[in-house]
């Protein structure tokens, strides 16, 4: 038996791509907070950089954000993430803004094959990365980031309703009109 809650914390699953914050740097591993009851680990050998034990701080320090993929989760929910899979956009996230949503709302924000998030990206000309754990990274001008933030909050509020895509089109059209007006 299983239950799918409307909200609640994130639990790492293998192959999920998540955004995490480095909270501790060890000799050969980073400890990463992925907004889950469990912390996760990133080993220096699972990064694209040539690192040596004891000096991994040069590449990632406490407070940095990474877009990483969950490599493995064991029975007691210990997990390890990797940055070393080419072509999947895994990387250290530099600059940008971080926002949080409940992880069960993530599929709705992404939309069918990314339709919803692409719409927001196009309309606001921002770069957006969404982690399965509900952490979202947005990069762009402060005005655009605020609009994207508001659009995502709207999805979060109305995730369980129908006809959301249409309302999003309307919303983006409206706020975009406003920003254009201000720009003059």
């Amino acid at each position: 038996m299983d239950v799918v809650p409307f909200h609640g914390s994130y639990f790492p699953r293998r192959n999920d791509k998540v955004i995490g914050k480095v909270i501790e740097v060890g000799p050969s591993m980073w400890t990463i907070d992925i907004r889950s009851p469990y912390l996760t680990m990133l080993h220096m050998n699972d990064t694209p950089w040539k690192t040596y034990s004891g000096e991994i701080k040069k590449y990632l320090n406490a407070g940095d954000y990474v877009y990483a993929k969950v490599m493995n989760v064991n029975e007691v929910k210990e997990s390890w993430v990797t940055l070393k899979e080419p072509g999947q956009g895994l990387r250290k996230l530099e600059g940008g803004h971080i926002m949080y949503v409940p992880s069960p709302k993530v599929p709705r924000i992404i939309g069918k094959t990314g339709s919803m998030v692409n719409m927001i990206k196009d309309a606001t000309s921002t770069r957006i990365v969404i982690g399965q754990n509900g952490v979202i990274w947005i990069d762009g001008t402060p005005e655009d980031v605020l609009i994207a933030d508001e659009a995502i909050r709207m999805i979060e509020r109305e995730a369980h309703t129908t006809g959301l895509t249409d309302r999003m089109v309307e919303f983006l059209k409206k706020v975009k009109g406003e920003t254009d007006g201000n720009a003059q």
């Binding site: 509020r157 109305e158 369980h160 309703t161 959301l164």
Partner: peptide, 11 residues
Amino acid sequence: KYAVSATEGGE
């Protein structure tokens, strides 16, 4: 709380 927002945003 879900019922309220469903009528707001429903079809």
